[in-house]
């Protein structure tokens, strides 16, 4: 009963952490459907279950109940090696702390997912890598090391790395958490541009101001979805950068 239309479809996905005596039910039967081309913000306080959901959606963890289809593939029963291949081919990860390999050039960081790929025989990996870096505007910084790049540039390297394998979706976990406001808006502008080009992006955040730039907001609390609504008119990051409107957005107020 797979549905080729949806990028993500979960039915009654549950997750119980069992540490012997104490059982914690982190997710309580999540039904979720995300279509190609969506730009979704997943919100919630810590302990709401959003991180657990992200791990399951990212195939880093497995649900204890329910079904999860990713791009039409039933992920539940896959072996660890198959999950690794799914992560490699279908998912592009972006993390709060950038998670680039230190003392490794931007080019080599972006190339890394290609090196672990098993479906790219005979392709020009260097060309793919270069194209991904060009897409995020870092063509001139290819051979810089992470410590020679600003936070925003590092995050763009991470975005290039997430895109290089042409995944079905990009999963971004607090992608602006370590960045100042202006750089955050820049990164959001990059996301919006990529989304406009057709890439599905799921963005986890706890800030409403960030979520305002997404087309759909899903909010978690106590292991359940308490809100799932389309945003009629998301804010345009590129325009905010031009007008300087972002300064009034309240994002600067973060500690």
């Amino acid at each position: 009963m797979s549905d080729p239309q949806a990028v993500i479809r979960t039915t009654r996905v549950g997750k119980i952490y069992d540490s012997g005596e104490i059982q914690v039910e982190a997710l309580k039967g999540i039904d979720l459907r995300i279509e190609p081309g969506e730009l979704v913000a997943i919100m919630g306080a810590s302990g709401s279950g959003k991180s657990t959901m992200l791990n399951i959606l990212g195939c880093l963890d497995r649900a204890t109940s329910g079904d999860y289809f990713l791009d039409g593939i039933h992920v539940n029963d896959l072996a660890p090696d198959q999950l690794a291949d799914i992560r490699n081919r279908k998912i592009g990860f972006i993390f709060q702390g950038f998670n680039l390999l230190s003392r490794t050039s931007a080019f080599e960081n972006v190339e890394l997912p290609l090196l672990y790929s098993r479906h790219l025989e005979g392709q020009d990996l260097a060309a793919l890598t270069r194209r991904a870096l060009e897409r995020v505007g870092l063509a001139d910084r290819m051979h810089h090391f992470p410590n020679q790049l600003s936070g925003g540039q590092q995050q763009r390297v991470a975005i290039a790395r997430a895109l290089v394998n042409q995944p079905a979706m990009v999963l971004a976990d607090e992608p602006t958490g370590n960045l100042d406001t202006r750089t955050s808006i820049e990164i959001l502008a990059t996301f919006q541009e990529l989304n406009r080009q057709g890439i599905t992006i799921i963005l986890v955040t706890h800030e409403h101001d960030i979520a305002d730039y997404c087309k759909r907001i899903i909010e978690f609390r106590d292991g359940r979805i308490i809100r799932d609504q389309k945003v009629a008119e998301p804010r345009a990051a590129a325009r905010d950068l031009e007008t300087g409107h972002w300064q009034a957005s309240g994002l600067g107020e973060r500690p």
Partner: peptide, 12 residues
């Protein structure tokens, strides 16, 4: 962890 997230198998 990073390598595994971007698709490295245990064997890799």
């Amino acid at each position: 962890g990073i390598r595994m997230a971007i698709g490295a198998r245990g064997r890799d």
